[in-house]
């Protein structure tokens, strides 16, 4: 299968503190890949390294192009969109302007029709187009953050703990949408989760991150059958 994202000996951190200690990771085109890991394992740092928000060493190749030194605003243009942890919507902007913001890398003509398309997928956003994003509920803001990322027409969507702080029923709805984006739109998705069960259900491949290193990886089935991982992350 064709690797859309290929990461080799990735090292990154904050100032003098190294958080990621040089691991490899590969996400194939058309897959849902999940990174599992406890709090502080380095999941967010991994996402930020891929999207270019922090300094990183090693090699990150997206669709055959090295992006290890590319700044974040150019990485979006190449087709990687990140939904940051804690949603990262523009709280002072209206829902509609958040979507326009997501389409910043594109020319004007198709933006309004793209917006209509995502309003169909997220009807609750449609009802609140003129409301400030900050006034939405947690679940609505997460949907908005995803819709905003989709407005850039990514080939790879990075979602950092999308279920954080959401009610179980909203989380289920969210994962159903992510799965549909993958199966119907062919979108490649890399999700970070602590809430592992749902994530592994929609995943093709899984990486387990512990203190900045990948300690296990494989297909979703392999990981679900790995006793140690299952006990630690799936809780049964």
């Amino acid at each position: 299968m064709n690797a859309l994202l290929e990461v080799r000996s990735l090292r990154a951190g904050y100032g003098a503190v190294q958080v990621l200690h040089g691991f490899d990771m590969r996400v194939n085109e058309g897959e849902v890949a999940v990174i599992l890991g406890a709090n502080g394992a380095g999941k967010t740092t991994t996402m930020r390294a891929i999207s270019g928000m922090i300094q990183r060493k090693g090699s990150i190749v997206f669709d055959g192009e090295p992006i290890t030194r590319t700044p974040p605003h150019e990485i979006v243009r190449m087709g990687i969109a990140q939904v940051p942890q804690g949603r990262g919507t523009f709280t002072d902007l209206s829902v509609a302007d958040n979507l326009r913001a997501g389409a910043y890398v594109h020319k004007g003509i198709h933006i309004e029709s793209d917006m209509r398309e995502w309003y169909d997928v997220f009807p609750r956003l449609s009802e609140r187009r003129e409301q400030k994003a900050g006034s939405l509920s947690g679940g609505e803001q997460q949907m908005l953050a995803i819709a905003r990322a989709l407005m850039s027409k990514p080939r790879l969507l990075l979602c950092d703990e999308p279920s954080l702080g959401l009610a179980p029923i909203i989380t289920q709805e969210l994962f159903a949408i992510l799965q549909r984006l993958n199966t119907e739109n062919g979108l490649t998705i890399l999700v970070v989760e602590q809430n592992a069960n749902l994530a592994v259900k929609i995943a093709h491949s899984v990486f387990v991150l512990e203190t900045g290193s990948i300690v296990a990886s494989g297909t979703a089935d392999e990981i679900a059958n790995d006793d140690a991982v299952r006990k630690a992350y799936l809780g049964y």
């Binding site: 999207s51 928000m53 700044p71 974040p72 605003h73 150019e74 979006v76 243009r77 969109a81 990140q82 940051p84 990262g88 919507t89 523009f90 709280t91 002072d92 902007l93 302007d97 913001a101 997501g102 910043y104 890398v105 905003r148 990322a149 850039s152």
Partner: peptide, 16 residues
Amino acid sequence: RMVANNPDSAKLSGVS
């Protein structure tokens, strides 16, 4: 307005 409201998300949306 994006940069004023949320500089990180502005970068992630493609704003220099």
